[in-house]
Design a protein around this nucleic acid. Structure first.
Length: 131
DNA sequence: TGCCTGACGACCC
DNA sequence: CGGGTCGCCAGGC
């Protein structure tokens, strides 16, 4: 899988996150079969053009700790993400150090591997013998 | 080739 | 919860 395919797979999975739900970079990475590439999921979203169709709900992807990742001092990306989440009804709280947090127990969406389409030709996990 | 850098994460205390 | 450390891996330079 090259870089372009990786980005495509990321967008495909992100589009399946239900409204009023959030998931993590690492879970996206696991779903597309590359569990150690959480950081690269972030890169894929960073390079996402906002006017792609169908739209990619990038704001529903946060860190596994439930915090909205900062884009660096002086940037407003995290703030815009917070507003996008609240606009669809997700509760965002303020952390002590000024970070934004989402309660994953309430808003988290972490489907098991094989239950989500990755958009590629990867065979879905269908291990009926062990279930 | 080597070192630094991230929209990250698991651990530890 | 919060702060610090270390591991990961593709890109940039």
């Amino acid at each position: 899988m090259d870089s372009a395919e990786f980005h495509t797979a990321v967008y495909h999975v992100v589009r399946q996150i239900p409204p009023q739900k959030v998931t993590s970079y690492s879970h996206i990475a696991k779903l597309i079969g590359m569990p150690r590439h959480a950081r690269h999921v972030g890169q894929a979203l960073k390079f996402l053009s906002l006017d792609v169709t169908p739209p990619v709900p990038w704001h529903r992807v946060i860190s596994a700790a439930g915090t909205i990742s900062s884009r660096g001092p002086g940037t407003t990306g995290a703030q815009r993400q917070r507003e996008a989440l609240e606009a669809e009804g997700i509760e965002v709280t303020d952390g002590r150090t000024g970070d934004f947090r989402v309660n994953l127990a309430t808003w988290g969406w972490f489907p098991a591997l094989g239950t989500v389409s990755t958009g590629g030709h990867e065979a879905p996990v269908n291990d009926t013998s062990s279930q």
